[in-house]
């Protein structure tokens, strides 16, 4: 629980506006959840309750969908999201060492967020860049043919920013 979650008024206002739009069409839940994830960075129970009230569904049902898809998260994520691919091709070319290196550097395990809220480390499935294996990503930017040194250097760049 590195980052405390607080809903800001303007975020709530934006989500409510989006929900009002989505309600015009059938199946408003999925687009609403995508917006909520974008606006708040995560969908904890507080946000689920808001969505439940607006859509007239139960909190448990909203949560069922949120926890079903890995795209949505319950806990706040860090400012930068690091994904290390543990797909077959990357794994055999040593992506586990990259994950271990980043994990050691940031002192967090896969799935966790640093205390300062700067980084979230995720172990991902194949991201479809097997030709560049092993790969990792930071905020969607792909680092190919990587190794622990490349990873450490990339982290340093972000730390200096």
């Amino acid at each position: 629980m590195a980052v405390k979650f607080v809903m800001k008024d303007e975020q709530v206002k934006e989500l409510k506006e989006r929900i009002a739009e989505h309600k015009q069409k059938p199946g408003p839940l999925m687009p609403t959840l995508h917006d909520a994830q974008r606006i708040f960075g995560c969908i904890p129970v507080q946000v689920q309750k808001l969505i439940a009230e607006e859509l007239g569904e139960s909190v448990a049902k909203i949560n069922g969908v949120v926890t079903f898809y890995s795209h949505f998260s319950i806990e706040p994520k860090g400012q930068h999201i690091i994904g290390v691919c543990l797909g077959t091709a990357c794994y055999v070319r040593g992506s586990q060492q990259i994950l271990d290196a980043i994990s050691g550097e940031l002192k967090i395990k896969a799935g966790e967020t640093t205390e300062d809220g700067l980084f979230t480390l995720e172990a991902t499935r194949c991201i479809g860049a097997c030709g560049l294996a092993p790969v990792f990503t930071i905020d969607g930017k792909v680092y190919g043919s990587a190794n622990p040194t490349v990873a450490r250097k990339a982290l340093e760049e972000y730390l200096q920013k």
């Binding site: 569904e57 139960s58 448990a60 049902k61 949560n63 069922g64 926890t67 079903f68």
Partner: peptide, 8 residues
Amino acid sequence: GVLDFNRR
């Protein structure tokens, strides 16, 4: 609707 599936 208090109960529902969690996760997958």
